[in-house]
Design a protein around this nucleic acid. Structure first.
Lengths: 344, 344
DNA sequence: GAACACCCTGTAACCGGTTACAAAGAAGGG
DNA sequence: CCCTTCTTTGTAACCGGTTACAGGGTGTTC
């Protein structure tokens, strides 16, 4: 690999001048600059990133903390691929790479109890590698550990988890508004008895979706009888069980808003088992717009999240902080109602 | 951050000794070693990775080349999440991190034609960052570009793409054997007229699945009439179209082996539209065992790939080469037949 | 007691960049 | 013409590690 010194020698200038050509071009005279640029191009010079990181204490890297929870092997992120695409493209645009940090703790450490074995270890890695900041992806039960990151003072952006810290913010969908859209849609279709199957209470999107649901139900002047709010865990079986309990009510709902598509699919199954026709006797609305939503029978009405957009927003937020900007406010990306047969 | 020099001063030894304690502990006397280790622990010393990479020309990083093809926006990797989990856990175990390399080319460059805008740029990044090696993930149409990586001399491991080069190898499922399993299963169920919907001809798993299919059909003494091999593109619509053409044959098959679950789902839809009952009138077998497979109606018989295992194997292969070992032979991981209702 | 090997340790060069500081030269003002 | 200011450049220190090499001490052998 060609070094800055070789170029300096070939051009008859000092290494400082060569370095300046790449970092503060305006401080170098036009003639020298052009010579250096030409020689650099001919030799296909690329600065050594390790040396650069050592000298400047900045690598062009953003860390990704995504620690799969081994205690929940079935856990899947509902939109990891799109999220990564969004993150990567927005970071690329600014010349940054994404470093998927290795899990510091072994299974042994993890067994002790902490889910993210040791946030401190991640923070250490961040400093050792001169990472600009961190993007935190929830993997089911890591959310509590995220506060440790948020308080470390490193720029960090969480996805779908609320965090608070001097240089911490988060990105998520506008879950409350999405839930309101869902309810409005059902009310317009004539429904008056609308129930919901929520996600885990501590989960940010789940809580916001429930809040939005309650808002909209109250706003439409509808009652919310006992038993119309059932908690699930985002997964299909819990949706199925919840739907069974709703059907068993003395006055069962005619429509149900589910906090995830997975649970909505479970609800569809329960409805089918109970002999309820969808949408004629029961309307179902999900959330996420996973691939499956369009394929089940009947196809599922759902709220599409801007999956890649969330990645892009997370990337922008972390870059803003890396570049010294103020800590961005949490971002809530709009969702889009996708009406399919399950509700009409 | 504490540095090696601070520790040296506190311990009354030279920096070289401190460095040796961490890199060649046996060359340092027991007493000094213990003192240094204790002080390092007290100060929570962590070596600066940039400095280390600069001096040794080795960073603990493995590059991930996964360039989403913008010309095929709908493209999804069938098992990215599990693959990443496998990669990450195996790399973590050896102290390596995974660097998702930014796309060097912008949309403009990409529009020119090349799908991976510039493999050379990636190779450059590899050297600049002192990456140990690369893992290449196919994103639909990058396979041809992978030969450039394979020939660069860098350790690289491709997933689901055959590459050839001095320090290049690949990892994939044992697709041919999986296809044979599928056919044997169908033959045992009494089928004599078995067709297949294949993936794109140039795709490695698709080609191997077709080869295995032909093997097993011939091995069972079955005929393979004209029109019984239809090429799809791995996606649902193509499976649906292919199934329609199979149904339209003068002697339609009673069973069909699809090279992907997505296409198998398409086949199920086509069968339903044609009024064919599955599995009574048509048996369908897919490949991949994506989440959707268990959820469609009827649930899909399919060949499960060892998704995380492929990641682990890829990680091991690249680490073997990084550590100076011989280039590993391509690995073909066993698949597992998951029998569900679509074939019984 | 000399010669030799081996073990341990320190000095200093090196990896390849960035940048503070000083100095030389050019331009502008009185 | 002298003084000041600005622009451009080079020297050299620095980032935080690794490691070749040399030298001192100890133990063994003859």
């Amino acid at each position: 690999m060609t070094t800055i010194r070789e170029i300096a020698q070939l051009c008859g200038v000092s290494v400082a001048t060569v370095s300046r050509v790449f970092n503060q071009p305006l401080t170098v005279s036009k003639e020298k600059r052009e010579v250096v640029e030409r020689v650099a191009r001919e030799l296909d010079y690329r600065p050594n990133e390790s040396a650069r990181a050592l000298a400047t204490k900045r690598s062009g890297l953003i860390g990704l903390v995504w620690d799969t929870d081994h205690r929940r092997p079935g856990w899947r992120h509902p939109y990891l691929q799109e999220l990564l695409i969004g993150l990567k493209s927005a970071l690329s645009a600014h010349g940054y790479h994404l470093l998927m940090l290795a899990t510091s703790g072994s299974a042994a450490l993890r067994a002790v109890g902490a889910s993210l074995a040791d946030p401190v270890a991640y923070v250490n890695m961040t400093r050792r590698h001169h990472l600009g900041g961190l993007v935190l992806i929830d993997s089911g039960s890591d959310a509590p550990a995220f506060t440790a990151f948020a308080q470390s003072g490193l720029p960090c952006v969480a996805v779908d988890v609320a965090v608070d810290g001097p240089r911490a913010t988060y990105v998520t969908s506008d879950n409350a508004e999405g839930a309101r859209q869902a309810v409005r849609h059902l009310v317009e279709a004539g429904h008056r008895r609308i129930a919901t199957i929520t996600g885990p209470g501590r989960n940010l999107p789940a809580a916001d979706r429930l809040t939005g649901f309650r808002d909209a139900v109250a706003g439409a002047g509808l009652a919310l009888p006992d038993g119309y709010v059932v908690e699930g865990d985002f997964y299909r079986p819990s949706g199925q069980a919840a739907m069974r309990s709703l059907i068993a009510l003395p006055e069962p709902p005619t429509a149900v808003f589910c906090a995830s598509d997975e649970m909505a699919v479970g609800a569809l199954l329960a409805a089918r088992h109970a002999g309820l026709r969808v949408p004629e006797e029961l309307a179902v609305v999900g959330f996420d717009d996973i691939e499956l939503a369009a394929l089940v029978d009947p196809p599922l009405t759902t709220l599409a999240q801007d999956k890649a957009g969330i990645g892009v927003a997370a990337a922008r937020a972390v870059l803003t902080m890396v570049h010294g900007g103020a800590t961005p406010e949490p971002a809530f990306l709009p969702t889009k109602l996708v009406v399919r047969s399950s509700s009409r």
